[in-house]
Amino acid sequence: MNIFRLVGDLSHLLAILLLLWKIWKTRSCAGVSGKSQIMFGLVYITRYLDLFTNFISIYNTTMKAIFIAVAIATIYLIYFKFKATYDSNHDTFRMEFLIVPVGGLAFLVNHDFTALEILWTFSIYLESVAILPQLFMISKTGEAETITSHYLFALGSYRALYIVNWVYRYYFEGFFDLIAIVAGCVQTILYCDFFYLYVTKVMHGKKLSLPA
């Protein structure tokens, strides 16, 4: 474990708790893409299948359990409890356009052609594009609530910090995983546009609004 990965994990945890808190407190999931949340749920479930078989540490197991639980709770709030506030007219990104190619790629490009490894690879590829429906929704509505932009900033920062973690591990542990690194770079690049808007607007107290 290194500081970059630890801060990255905490930023990730902050992001998903922030979103859950926002939906619960405002009793509304307006501006939140349910499709992205479904894909994140899929990411955690396919990646943490080894939750009970491969014990790494208390921290590792606890965080995995929290990620899965919070993802499921968020999906429940969006599609069941606060279903009336779900903005399906703006959450129109076709998930199958992401899941099918990612599933195919996971079969073609992976480290080991075993079920667990292919599911892990699928999870890594899917995570890199899972935010697209959310970013697409913001581009359609033209704006995002401030709390939602904080969620996106924390979520985008987590994988950016992981990239630093991978550089660190390469130089100090001789460890690197090209699949995770490439997917992590793609994922972070997708946030660049948002990061720019966040820094130039939200940090100056303005609302996040995309140029119409």
């Binding site: 990965r5 080894d50 590792n60 990620f67 480290h111 080991d112 460890f175 995983d177 995770a180």
Partner: peptide, 10 residues
């Protein structure tokens, strides 16, 4: 070695 190590990340 890479396989084993990879699984320690979230």
């Amino acid at each position: 070695e890479i396989q084993q190590k990879k699984k320690d990340e979230l």
